[in-house]
Amino acid sequence: MSPNKVQIEERTREIVAPWKNRQGGTIPVLQEVQKELGYLPEDALMVISRELKIPASELYGVATFYAQFHLKPRGRHIIRVCRGTACHVRGSLLIQEKIKNILQVEDNGTTEDLRFTLEPVACLGACGLAPVMMVDGETHGRLTPDKVMTIVESYE
């Protein structure tokens, strides 16, 4: 069950508490809230804005500037497919196309059953294993379009 407005606000208030009257809290708080809730609901942003005394517009500016933050719910599993140079040279475009095909989603899209979200990223730092993708915390390297199918299917 996804949390309701009251629960979201309560939890957010707890996360913000240690950062009140301290510098540099915005990003760590957004990170923490997203870690808990999976994304940044509007209700949470409004609480952060009030508690940290930052205009909501400014907070929205920060949240949309960084690729890491999401304002919409995401899938249970996050597939990060690398589109860095080393992976590009070794055919990552085909891998990306294959995943889009299997899941029937666009880049940064989420499947209707909320099972997967597909995120192209700049580099996963495993360039020696190119082409690479990461599902949740797990890295899969030396991919071929064939292997992708098996890997994707192994996540419920």
Partner: peptide
């Protein structure tokens, strides 16, 4: 430790500091 939030330009030193301060990394 400060955790980045996924923006290439934050590698630039002044943007990085803006990011530590909790702003947009410009």
């Amino acid at each position: 430790i400060k955790e980045g939030a996924g923006a290439f330009v934050c590698g630039e030193e002044t943007a990085l500091m803006a990011s530590i301060e909790g702003e947009r990394g410009m």
